[in-house]
Design a protein around this nucleic acid. Structure first.
Length: 130
DNA sequence: CAGATGACTTGTG
DNA sequence: GCACAAGCCATCT
């Protein structure tokens, strides 16, 4: 059906160099997500907190949605909700892909939840030391 | 321009 | 401990 485009979150014609008002947020989230060590996981709240918008953890989720369109692959599988549950798995190409990737990283996943999530939790604020 | 949605989090009942 | 509601901000309709 004729839906030309505009499915992505605003194609950045001018990118972030012109008016970095919103895309900065996405890039920040992606940057943090990429810095997540292998075998570790973090939460939307932690990233949001690091960015200073802990009250808007939802926006982090939106950034992950945009991560699909990001050039380099974003290890969004390492980002889970506060319960350690793979809430965003359904947004992957396949619902099981997220778990597969996590297990490949060495993270045990059971019942769509990261096992010993507390132990594997990685806080960007601590790693990046602000 | 206004209303609705969302890969969340926290608080109260 | 579980269920419902409010808050947050950007994007979509």
């Amino acid at each position: 059906m004729p839906k030309p485009s505009s499915k992505l979150p605003k194609q950045p014609t001018n990118a972030v160099k012109s008016e970095p008002k919103t895309y900065t947020f996405f890039e920040d989230v992606w940057a943090v997500t990429r810095q997540i060590p292998k075998g570790r996981v973090t939460t939307y709240g932690a990233i949001a907190n690091y960015l200073g918008t802990k009250l808007s953890a939802r926006m982090v989720g939106w950034a992950m949605n945009a991560a699909h369109t990001a050039k380099p692959k974003i290890p969004a599988q390492r980002v889970v909700n506060r319960n350690g549950m793979l809430t965003g798995k359904m947004h992957f190409k396949t619902p099981t892909l997220m778990q597969e990737l996590l297990e490949k990283d060495g993270v045990a996943v059971e019942n769509d939840t990261v096992v010993e999530f507390k132990k594997l939790f990685w806080d960007p604020a601590l790693a990046l030391a602000i």
